[in-house]
Nucleic acid binder design. Structure first.
Lengths: 257, 257
DNA sequence: GCCGGCCTTTCACTGAGTGAAATAGACGCT
DNA sequence: AGCGTCTATTTCACTCAGTGAAAGGCCGGC
């Protein structure tokens, strides 16, 4: 083969799936090939197989989209829908009591992924999307997930530049390190206007059967009417409730994130 | 290669993903190889690549599960999370008004797939699972999806044996054909104790921008206190509301299901 | 000790996958 | 009609990624 050797067929197939993003969920074959860095004929053949299986779907407009079959398989992810199913009742309780945004997230490498969100119609608008990613160092859930992450992950985040979202975002590694220690000491995290200047979030850890932190839950409220200290026990209690349900089910053991 | 020629690498990778089911979401490599009908070394290599990418995750127990990365990609499916996001507010309204189970489903080939469910704590327990499949001929959503499906799909369902769930399940092709005509005439479907003897569901279609039926929404209520004729307008209105939001967004055009 | 599961590595073979090039359709502009 | 640019598919000869039988390694149970 003339192409750069060392590229497996599997990696090409996965690169095609990787080409889809929240910003561009519908792509032509050419776009797909460009993003996956594959020659057009190769992309054409792999895509045809993916469509035949249902991993991709071709719309009337000729563009390809992620297929329902892939969504079905994805829904079997324990850290995705599995976690959501267990957490949702508790999240709804938290929403009923506060009528504020409730968020559930897990860590994937050095980022967080939002698993579920209950957005009150009258609550602060949040820009997060279920299935979307975000940096660990700014949000409440992110601080919790980072505080309890393995050391090597923490170091990776602390040594890389910390993106600034507002003037209150922690971008100094030393300050972040102290903030994480505080999270571990108190058992909850507060992100005060570190993502947007109008919002504040309070987050607590969710633990798996072995006691390791596998997810985080948070309340996002309008900053001006927020009392983090009053909200913390509420969020922590929710976290503990979900941790308990995790202990009794959750497939079985925790996959290493 | 000694193996049966004609099996592409891609098909093997997809077969590995296919091995996971709601009943068995955590598999050892050997189980995985058996279900995908692959020799162990082959499965081992493909699985290693899938794990490296994040499509699969390996737990502390050595079992493989669907990975979060695959859930992320799956969440980009327009007919999955995309549809859910658009429909959820309306579904919540329907729930607030009735406090009964609200279900959202789409058709995939000759079955239906549940996209979302709001299950009231005090409502009839339903056995459906988000991401789960079901036959088209019994449920309310199924009857709607089948009534507006392409002729070849209808014929496929009508000529195959119709599984019986209760004594009221329609298993006669002629009767089913008449039921579907009635659905098309009235614009809604009623499944009266055709899945379980305690539940009744009323369903209405959801249409895409081109007018084609792309999904169905239903209320599932306890049979003894149900009044289908009273519920129908409510469900139909919800269906129309969601259809309207579909017209203005939904990525763009409808993929052929 | 020995067997039954697990899973990974070795090694020589070979056809599935390859991509440049050619083909062909679909649009827009002049 | 003619040209340019975008699409996507098909052809064809080459070759290396993928292959699986067999061997090796690692637990636990008996």
């Amino acid at each position: 083969m003339d192409a750069q050797p060392g590229r497996s067929v599997t990696s090409k197939v996965l690169a095609l799936l990787d080409a889809f993003t929240p910003a561009g969920p519908a792509l032509t074959l050419s776009e797909l090939a460009r993003r996956a860095e594959l020659p057009l004929p190769t992309a054409s053949r792999r895509v045809a197989e993916l469509v035949a299986w249902g991993a991709l779907e071709r719309g009337d407009d000729g563009r390809y989209r992620i297929g329902l079959r892939l969504w079905e398989v994805g829904s079997l992810a324990p850290r995705g829908l599995g976690l959501r199913e267990l957490a949702l009742p508790t999240m709804e309780d938290l929403y009923e009591v506060t009528h504020e945004n409730v968020q559930l997230a897990v860590r994937q490498d050095v980022e967080l992924v939002f698993i579920e969100r209950i957005a009150g119609r009258h609550a602060v608008p949040v820009l997060t999307r279920v299935g979307g990613r975000f940096a660990l160092h700014a949000t409440g859930v992110g601080l919790v997930l980072l505080a309890y992450a393995p050391t090597e992950i923490q170091e990776q985040v602390l040594t890389a530049p910390l993106e600034r979202y507002t003037e209150l975002t922690i971008t100094d590694p030393g300050r972040l390190r102290r903030a994480l220690a505080e999270v571990r000491r108190t058992g909850y995290a507060v992100s005060d206007r570190q993502v947007t200047m109008d919002a504040l979030s309070v987050a607590a850890p969710i633990c798996g059967p072995e006691g390791a932190v596998v997810a985080a839950i948070s309340l996002v409220v309008a900053q001006h009417r927020a009392d983090p200290v009053a909200l913390a026990p509420l969020v922590q209690a929710a976290g503990r409730t979900i941790s308990r349900s995790l202990g009794t089910s959750y497939g079985s053991r925790r996959p290493s994130g």
